[in-house]
Every structure is written in structure tokens, then in C-alpha cells.
């Protein structure tokens, strides 16, 4: 199950309109969608946002990848649903957090699946974030595939020592991840030290002003992309106060009578 998680955010260099949009414009766009997702709490509204995001993912030819990643996360979605149902006692109310989680994923994918990690690093720096922050962020992203590979290795090693991940009740299963998580944490710490050292010997110094070989340039297209999305967000937000799933259900009832 854990083996494909990294696929969720793995960038693939494709030639689609979305891949050519300036990352800053994309970042601003996903930001407004994230805000909208947090503000709205009606399933129908969330569904509309989802449709908008999915159609953009389709343009970026990232829909299949998103679906694949989603499949691996289905157990988590079910878990969110169950936990919320236990505390809220209503299926429709517990579907909201599930949908929100799904939307977060889709929105994040919209950015990460269509943005070159190098461009992402440039974006963070252009936002005037300190180098230590922007570099750690882009390095973290860069190391997701490496880490996934390592997870795979460790899972295989522990399976070969008789670990049965798919047996026992829920809590027993969680405990079975200890022999996988501990080695991963230890290896990650070791690697972070190695990476830090290799950065230092290659002259990375957060106190020196850096210049860039490639500079990001905002074009008309990038601005239009953001404005169109901003328009969509505003329309969905304004419409949300007039139409909700309850009013729709009431309307359906009304038309039956």
C-alpha cells in the first residue's frame, strides 16, 4: 500500500498548456482553491470545485496519475469516513471531510504533477523565502522518490523476515508498521546529515546572495490563467450562498409533489 504513495506527487515532464504556466501563477491559483475548500462545507459545492480541478488535471494529462495515487489512499479515505461517522453519527456530514481530503490531494496534484521541482524551488525563492526554507522544501520534494524506494526495500526485507502486514485487527496492523517506520526514520536522519554535508562542500551558503541561471518570467497567459480561476472561485463562492445540496433536495422533493 505504501509503495505507490510517492506517485501522488511525482512530476512528469509533459508538453501540456498547464506545464507551461508559470509556477507562481499556479501557486496562487491552488492557494485560492485551497481557501475555498476550507470555507465551503457543502458536499455539492465541494463537488463543483472537484470537477473544476479534475478538468484542469485532465488538461495537464495528470488525471490517471491522480487516480492511481487516490487508489492507494483509499484506506485512509475510508478511515477518515469511519472516524468522522463515529463522532458525527451522520454519513452525509462525515462525507464532507473525506471530500475535503480528496480535494486537497487533487489541488496539490494540480501543482506538483505539472510543475518541475526546479521551477518550484525558483518559485519559493522568488517569494523571498530564506534559502534554508526554500531549499529544504524543494529537497524534501526531490527526495520523495528516493524515500519511496527505500520504503520498498525495507518492506521487502521485513516481509522476508516473516512480517505479515495484512493480518490482524486494525491496531495490530498499525503496530506492524513499527519495523518499517523505525528504519525509515533512522535512514532519513542519516541521509539528511549526508545531504547537508554535501551541500556545504559544494559551497551552498544561505548568507550569500544567489543569482539564477534560469529566471521565471510572468507572461500574459499566466496572468489570464490565474484570473480565470479567480473568477471561477468567486462565482462558486457567491453561488454557494444561494444553492446548497439541501435546497436542491428540497427542490427535488417539491417537484415530485
Amino acid at each position: 500500500m505504501m509503495r505507490n504513495i510517492h506517485e501522488l506527487f511525482k512530476y512528469e515532464s509533459l508538453n501540456t498548456p498547464l506545464h507551461h504556466i508559470d509556477p507562481r501563477s499556479k501557486l496562487a491559483t491552488i492557494f485560492i482553491y485551497l481557501v475555498l475548500t476550507i470555507i465551503l462545507s457543502d458536499i455539492m459545492h465541494l463537488l463543483i470545485i472537484l470537477i473544476i480541478i479534475l478538468s484542469q488535471l485532465a488538461i495537464g494529462r495528470a488525471l490517471r496519475k491522480f487516480a492511481k495515487g487516490l487508489l492507494t489512499l483509499t484506506p485512509f479515505l475510508v478511515l477518515i469516513l469511519i472516524l468522522n461517522y463515529l463522532s458525527l453519527g451522520s454519513v452525509s456530514a462525515s462525507l464532507v471531510p473525506v471530500f475535503r481530503f480528496l480535494l486537497f490531494l487533487a489541488i496539490m496534484d494540480l501543482f506538483f504533477l505539472t510543475t518541475d521541482p526546479d521551477d518550484f524551488a525558483l518559485t519559493l525563492e522568488s517569494l523571498r523565502l530564506p534559502l534554508t526554507v526554500s531549499l529544504s522544501f524543494s529537497l524534501a520534494l526531490r527526495f520523495i522518490p528516493t524515500m519511496a524506494e527505500q520504503v520498498n526495500e525495507i518492506v521487502e526485507a521485513q516481509l522476508s523476515r516473516g512480517l505479515k502486514l495484512d493480518q490482524g485487527n486494525f491496531f495490530a496492523r498499525i503496530r506492524k508498521y513499527v519495523p518499517i517506520l523505525i528504519p525509515i526514520i533512522i535512514l532519513s536522519i542519516k541521509r539528511s546529515i549526508e545531504v547537508a554535508e554535501s551541500l556545504e562542500i559544494r559551497g551552498v551558503d544561505p548568507n550569500i546572495k544567489r543569482i539564477h541561471y534560469v529566471a521565471l518570467k510572468l507572461s500574459m497567459r499566466d496572468i489570464v490563467y490565474f484570473l480565470v480561476n479567480l473568477g471561477l472561485v468567486i462565482v462558486v463562492y457567491l453561488a454557494s450562498s444561494y444553492i446548497s445540496s439541501e435546497s436542491l433536495i428540497a427542490l427535488l422533493h417539491f417537484s415530485k409533489i
Binding site: 527505500q150 525495507i154 521487502e156 526485507a157 522476508s160 523476515r161 516473516g162 518499517i180 528504519p183
Partner: peptide, 16 residues
């Protein structure tokens, strides 16, 4: 695995 014991490359990575 009970029959075929596998010792991976850098097996000390799996200690926990």
C-alpha cells in the same frame, strides 16, 4: 521465507 532466507544488500538498514 521460512525456506528461503533472504539477506539483502546492506541488511543492517532494516534494524528497528
Amino acid at each position: 521465507s521460512r525456506k528461503v532466507g533472504m539477506i539483502f544488500q546492506y541488511p543492517e538498514k532494516m534494524f528497528f
